[in-house]
Design a protein around this nucleic acid. Structure first.
Lengths: 125, 125
DNA sequence: CAGTATCCATTTTGATACTG
DNA sequence: CAGTATCAAAATGGATACTG
């Protein structure tokens, strides 16, 4: 409700949305969202896998970001078992296409923060 | 002082910094920093040019971000006249190399936010 | 386990006023 | 103009407890 209300009430909202970068920043211009996307790109799919990142994301924040990413069509949430109901999160095509952004960030980050490394992609078979 | 203090006090800070993406997010994982970088990439150099972006960045926020970007070695601040002292902000080599990130964002943004456009680069001669 | 809910501290912002 | 200062409001975050 927040975003829509903002768009309706705030006359500046239109201008803001006319720039592609601004729109993308509305999506992940914060400390956590891109980290969640990183983990999904690396192959994580379950809540438990996502919650254990070294950055120690809080459970409420993770839940919030997963919801927002689903709303944005970046990920899907699919049940993989009943009782108890459990879900897997996967990138959609739209989400997969964020990968070049991540790669550009990684390239720059590795160069200017020497000693950093990216976790290996989780292999599934 | 804030960042350094954080690194010194917070035991989790080390883990956080071992990932290149996390480090980059510390730099521009917020609503405004990347917008400032966008404008600089587009050729803006002076405070007045930067302050008039359609997103209406507040003057204190702009000043803060310029300072942080300078501290990070992304931009330089050079006087171009005295009395009154006036400065130009330009991307360093390190800052120029952020361009691929911006380009990846723009590519994705243009695709998924149809109707958005990027401002033309300011031409100087 | 996979979230949801709550509560409070901290951070970020936005508006406005002020200075050289 | 190019910032700096102030300050209240809003957003965000972290810790913890709770539910099915």
């Amino acid at each position: 409700m927040k975003k829509e209300q903002k768009a309706a009430d705030n006359p500046a909202a239109f201008e803001r949305s006319s720039c592609p970068i601004t729109n993308v920043l509305d999506l992940f211009g914060d400390k956590w969202t891109l980290l969640v996307i990183r983990d999904l790109v690396l192959g994580k799919r379950r809540y438990q896998e996502l919650i254990v990142s070294p950055e120690k994301i809080a459970s409420n924040i993770l839940a919030d970001r997963l919801k927002k990413l689903e709303d944005a069509g970046i990920i899907t949430r699919q049940a993989y078992q009943q009782k108890p109901a459990r879900y897997e999160y996967r990138l959609t095509q739209k989400g997969e296409e964020l990968q070049p952004i991540l790669e550009a960030i990684i390239t720059w980050g590795l160069k200017y923060y020497p000693g950093t490394t990216i976790f290996p992609r989780i292999e599934r078979y």
